[in-house]
Design a protein around this nucleic acid. Structure first.
Lengths: 146, 146
DNA sequence: GTTATTTAGTAACATATGTTACTAAATAAC
DNA sequence: GTTATTTAGTAACATATGTTACTAAATAAC
C-alpha cells in the first residue's frame, strides 16, 4: 500500500496536537483555581479592557458560537461577574461589562495567564517568536482566502 | 483599567483560531463528499499504512479519547470500512484494519487531503515551512516538559 | 493453581455543544 | 404610518463528548 500520508507529520494534525497542549496548559491557570470554562475565560478577557459590549460583539471577538456566548454570559451573570444594562439605543440587546467582582477576578487571572504564555513561549527566542507570529498570520490569511 | 492582555494577540488564542480554520479547511475535503467525522478520518489515516492495530494503539496514534476511538471504530465497522479480528495473543482486544472498501476510500481521500495541506502551506516558502515545523516541535516539547 | 490486581473495551449516564424555532425589537418597503 | 423583513438573543431539541461503572480476559502475588 503506497501511502504518503503520515498522520504524525501531517500539518493540520500537528497543529491540532500543539493547540490542544497549549490550550490545556493555559486552562490549568484559569480552570482549577478560578473555576472558569474556556468560554467564560474568553468573555472575561474580552471585557477586560473595561469597555461594555453587546453579546453579539463578544461573540465576534471571542470567536465563540452564538449559543456558547449566550450561555457563558448567562452563567457569569449568575455568578455575579458581569453587569448587564439594556442598550437604550437598541432594546433587543444588552450591554455587558465586568462587575466589581469580575474586575477583581480579571486582575487576578490576567498576570497568571500572561506569565503562562511567556513560560510557554520562552523556548523560543524573541526573533523566533516574531517569526512564528508572522507565519501564523500568513496561514490564517490563507485560510480566509481559500 | 490597566490591561496588557489582548485576546486577539494572545498566542494561545491565535493558535486556537488558526487551528480551527485549518481544521475546517481539511474537513471540507473528507466530511462532505465522504461523510466522515474528524475522528473517523483520523482512524482511517492511521490504518492507512495497512498495518492492523488494536483500538488502544489507534487511540494513542490519533490523539483521540478512548471513547471517541471506540465510537469511531464502531461506526466504521457498521459502515463496512474496517475489518475486526480478535487478537489471539490477547483475547480482550481486537485487531483492526481497513476492509477493501476502507482501502478504496482511503486511496480516494488521501491525495485530496494532501493536496489541501499543500494548498494551505503554499503561502509559505519551503524554508518557512521547515522553520514553522521546527518552531512547533519546540513548543510541543515545551508543553510536555512543563 | 487459586486469589488479587491490572487492562482492553464498551455501556450507561451526565454534561457540553450545535441547530432549529421562536420572541421581541429594529429597519425597510410601500 | 402600516406591513414585511431583518436582527439580537434565548429556549427547546438533537447530537456529541467525556466520565464512571462494568465485563471479560490477562498478569501478578502468593
Amino acid at each position: 500500500m503506497t501511502d504518503k500520508l503520515d498522520l504524525a507529520s501531517f500539518f493540520p494534525y500537528r497543529l491540532a496536537e500543539l493547540q490542544q497542549a497549549i490550550s490545556n496548559s493555559v486552562a490549568q491557570v484559569y480552570a482549577g483555581r478560578f473555576n472558569l470554562t474556556r468560554q467564560q475565560w474568553r468573555v472575561l478577557a474580552v471585557l477586560g479592557d473595561g469597555v461594555h459590549k453587546s453579546a453579539k460583539t463578544i461573540c465576534g471577538l471571542t470567536n465563540l458560537d452564538k449559543m456558547q456566548t449566550s450561555r457563558a454570559i448567562a452563567k457569569m451573570l449568575e455568578n455575579g461577574l458581569l453587569s448587564k444594562v439594556t442598550d437604550e439605543k437598541d432594546k433587543r440587546s444588552a450591554l455587558l461589562s465586568l462587575s466589581d467582582k469580575g474586575v477583581v477576578l480579571y486582575r487576578n487571572i490576567e498576570p497568571l495567564v500572561l506569565a503562562r504564555e511567556q513560560q510557554l513561549l520562552s523556548v523560543l527566542s524573541k526573533s523566533e517568536q516574531q517569526q512564528l507570529s508572522s507565519l501564523m498570520a500568513k496561514l490564517l490569511d490563507r485560510t480566509h482566502r481559500l
